[in-house]
Design a protein around this nucleic acid. Structure first.
Lengths: 340, 340
DNA sequence: CTGAAAGCGCTTACAG
DNA sequence: CTGAAAGCGCTTACAG
């Protein structure tokens, strides 16, 4: 198809060597002005575009990075990815994006493909706490930084929230509003960040002398429909909880879906608090009380650090471990407890 | 960094030639079983991963496609991109994603970079109606398909909605509920799809004998904040509109933000209808009445057609022009007109 | 069934 | 200031 025009074609047309064409392409300074002009002209006439694949092969860098997220339809991932994509563009990096759908096998496959494509580095926002592949990549000196994820006991670079504090803040807010029965949408604990929130939830309950009821905790796979069903089920109990804390705003929205489906009022009948502070949480119509992860800052820090790793000499680089401060944003979905 | 292991290293370790290593990598059938095993073993011990960049150079295909969208934080783009990314993975294509932020210059830059990186094809969801570059790419036989976009008078492959019908459906629904003053969040008409909706809005008004009031039409750049401000402004007029139609669900949400900010009720005080049917529109707490674009179907068709273009011989391929049928989904944000 | 060699389209010492 | 040549890591005829 199309027989692409190469630097050699340009060279012939301009009556110079291919090396010279390459030099003007790379803005090599010592070229006679006349020569440069001839080359530029030929490039234009021929509609030449330099083959970056060939260039990557010799330069041993592709100026593309891999971005691995859980699921792009979760606004937390979409919005943080947006920040990364835009900033990467400015820094002249392309991004290949992968959804894991929270499946370990898909994560492995994504990593393998990205390594095969020789990306300069990887940003990953959804890696299970014990992922050996990521650990190994890091130990081999491959540029990788995690955000919204962390490994169990490894030095792998990461930008993450103080999740424990975040979950504490959420439960405390509810407890101080007088809520005694606080349900929790926890999710599976293969992610360290998610697990930490769960632990903090339990600790916070204890701190406020509230009892832990495993029936009020959803630990299964986090799909919208399952959470809606769970919400409806626990709210149909005679001793229903008066507040529900969700480990993500996406899931808090699913809880709201369930609550509205039951005809219950928020926050009069049930208070809801999320986690992430996705854009829509601030919409006045929703007004979701939540814990901010400062996703833009998180994403930007992750990218900045990755680029630094890529462009530095690797040797003298210290592991990066940034902990971001959570912030409680009180909006309309939480209120004082009206029930028992 | 890391001195990657090459097929040549594998060859030496296995005591065969590099050609043989290449053959086992490519599942060439006529290899002695013993040889294959030796090679596989060497590959494992060395932790070899084939350099896809080098392979792309000789094969003249990269198995990556470019995906150009307006803005990933708009759920319509994020969700359709999600469908594309997942399906592409299954088909063994990677996707490089670009946000244009609805800026023509960024679109051009994205295309140039993608061409430079020798992607096998491009999917674009946000291209201005008169884009010469896209047209030229298509005419040169480069695999490109648009979705949610179309060019003015060009054959470029596209999957798009019957936008006119969609907007008609929306206004008719409102008119039949008795609304006389229907505002419209139109956006800039550089996109043909957006323009078509605007034209249909006017035609529908006419059909129902409703007058067109340019002050009730928002034609500026579509940002959340600007639409909130506009909404508040028109709803503060003594003769305020009783219904607002937005050209996207994202903007309908902005309208709801403005309405809620004013303390007005939906749909009692003002009915709202969107366009796209993003996932959250179906959430019972929101219940946004909208026009479905069948985004999953649209995205999948776009990808399928692109892959077909890439993998076929190009010559015998007819231009693809799929028009998707819009569907009115009535939910909670629209109701009969209570006002004058 | 397997090896030696050419070639994909660039960059970059090395000469001049 | 510029050209000839080697090399990046593969694939694929061509021989044998």
């Amino acid at each position: 198809m199309k027989g692409r025009v190469t630097a050699d074609d340009v060279a012939k047309k301009a009556g110079v060597s291919q090396s010279t064409v390459s030099r003007v392409l790379n803005n090599y300074p010592f070229i006679k002005e006349g020569t440069r002009e001839k080359v530029l002209e030929a490039i234009n006439e021929l509609g030449f575009t330099r083959d970056e694949i060939a260039r990557s092969l010799v330069e041993k860098k592709t100026r593309t990075i891999g971005l691995i997220i859980g699921n792009i339809s979760n606004p937390f991932f979409a919005e943080s990815a947006g920040v990364i994509i835009s900033k990467a563009q400015k820094e002249k990096y392309d991004v290949i994006i992968y959804n894991t759908n929270h499946d370990d096998y898909q994560l492995e496959k994504a990593i393998s493909t990205l390594i095969g494509k020789r990306v300069d580095g990887i940003l990953a926002a959804a890696v299970n706490r014990n992922n050996a592949r990521v650990k190994q990549l890091y130990e081999n000196g491959f540029p990788i930084v995690l955000y919204n994820s962390r490994l169990d006991d490894s030095e792998v670079n990461s930008i993450s929230l103080d999740n424990k504090k975040g979950a504490m803040l959420a439960v405390e807010h509810l407890a101080e509003l007088g809520h005694k029965k606080i349900a929790y949408i926890a999710g599976p604990s293969k992610y360290l960040t998610v697990y930490e929130r769960y632990v903090a939830y339990r600790e916070a309950l204890q701190k406020y002398g509230l009892s832990y009821d495993s029936e009020l905790v959803f630990k299964e796979e986090l799909t919208h429909d399952k959470v809606v069903t769970f919400t409806k089920r626990i709210l149909s109990r005679p001793d229903r909880p008066s507040a529900i804390f969700a480990m993500s705003d996406e899931m808090a929205l699913a809880v709201m879906d369930g609550v509205a489906g039951l005809g219950l009022k928020i926050p009069e009948d049930v208070s809801i608090i999320g986690f992430d502070n996705i854009n829509i949480a601030a919409n006045s119509y929703i007004g979701l009380t939540t814990i901010s992860q400062q996703k833009e800052k998180m994403a930007l820090l992750a990218l900045d650090n990755l680029i630094q790793l890529i462009e530095s000499d690797q040797k003298d680089v210290q592991p990066v471990h940034v902990i971001i401060e959570p912030e409680l944003l009180i909006r309309r979905t939480t209120g004082v407890c009206n029930g028992s």
